[in-house]
Design a binder for these strands. Structure first.
Lengths: 191, 191
DNA sequence: CATTTTACTTACTAAGTAGTAAGTTTGTCA
DNA sequence: TGACAAACTTACTACTTAGTAAGTAAAATG
């Protein structure tokens, strides 16, 4: 038996995709099992409960984000390029069949998901916000960005607008998402 | 029997609240019935299917929004006050046990809700955006607002940021929501 | 080669889901 | 007063849900 890591990873990929597509309450173990061509119980073998599966998805995403921002390919970018990189994460979601931000998805269902999952969502949200705040702060000091208010508030605005724009794009089309990204850049880039 | 309209309205109120609290896939007829102190089938008597119930909630909200914006109490406000009024709608959601925007909630679950409901969500989103765009446009011409880009893009940014901020506030607290509102005002109000 | 471990399947449970059909109570109105 | 209709309840169906327990085939390991 050689596909231990492979099966586990495939389940995580599918769960992540379903989370972004239909939300935590919108998918079932049966969805994953049928897509994978195995039985329901096989999913439970890898992830005892839906809560642990959800937690694993978010934890993996947190690891991934940490690796990204500490990798030279992102770390060595200019402030403006860093912001573009941030937006590009979400542009990929959009291109990929109208997926939505994991954080936003789970926050909408916040009051109907297990508590362990809530904690993970909070951590991921906080970590992304911290990075964005630091990027905005550096960029303003370097003269690349110009905005009023604190970097923390501006980061919260940019992040929540992108999150909301992904959702809005589902009803009103991808253009709305691109509009929001462009408007954010106009609002923050020094003339 | 005298409480026809009353029961129907109470069901709509509860459904709206549950939608904002747990999402469309996060509540059931049983939740409404038990809260109301009646049996499941009583809800089906008033709303044949969950889809028609959801549609009715959104349609009522659309009517409400139309009444609001055409009422003198909003219509006669200054541009700046209109924007404040818009934000205040969502501040009320926040104050009311961390509720989330109906539009955002349903857009997250967009791919797992009935099609008739999707259409309603699209209409509500479009109508609110149109009003916000017009308000921003008027305000800029009147010298109350200052921003780059089109009123349409700025409206999309403001709306999606508020939508996202309500969600973010669930994980990170109400302060985040207030920060986003304040930042939006700083970004748009003429110095 | 024997044992253990991995990755499942089969077969099930208990609970919840939307939805329906038929009957009941109660107020309204001709 | 009697018919009707509104607003339910009772009792059910068909289905889906997460989760479990026991068994199995095959690969890894000692």
């Amino acid at each position: 038996m050689v596909k231990i890591e492979n099966s586990k990873r495939t389940i995580l990929n599918l769960a992540e995709s379903l989370l972004q597509d239909k939300g935590f309450n919108g998918f079932s173990y049966a969805d994953i099992a049928s897509e994978l061509g195995v039985k329901n119980a096989a999913i439970h073998y890898h992830f005892a409960s839906k809560e642990t599966l959800g937690i694993a998805v978010i934890q993996r995403y947190r690891e991934r984000f940490k690796l990204w921002i500490n990798n030279a390919r992102v770390k060595d970018l200019s402030s403006e390029e860093k912001l573009d990189w941030f937006f590009s994460i979400y542009s990929d979601f959009r291109a990929d069949n109208g997926k939505v931000c994991l954080v936003g998805s789970l926050e909408v269902e916040f009051n109907s998901i297990p508590e362990g999952l809530r904690k993970e969502v909070e951590s991921l949200n906080r970590e992304m916000l911290v990075w964005l705040e630091a990027t905005l702060s550096e960029g303003r000091e370097a003269g690349a960005f110009r905005f009023n208010g604190s970097p923390a508030s501006k980061a919260a605005l940019i992040y929540s607008s992108v999150q909301g724009a992904l959702q809005m794009a589902r009803a009103l089309g991808t253009k709305k998402f691109r509009d929001v990204v462009e408007q954010n850049k106009q609002d923050v880039l020094a003339a």
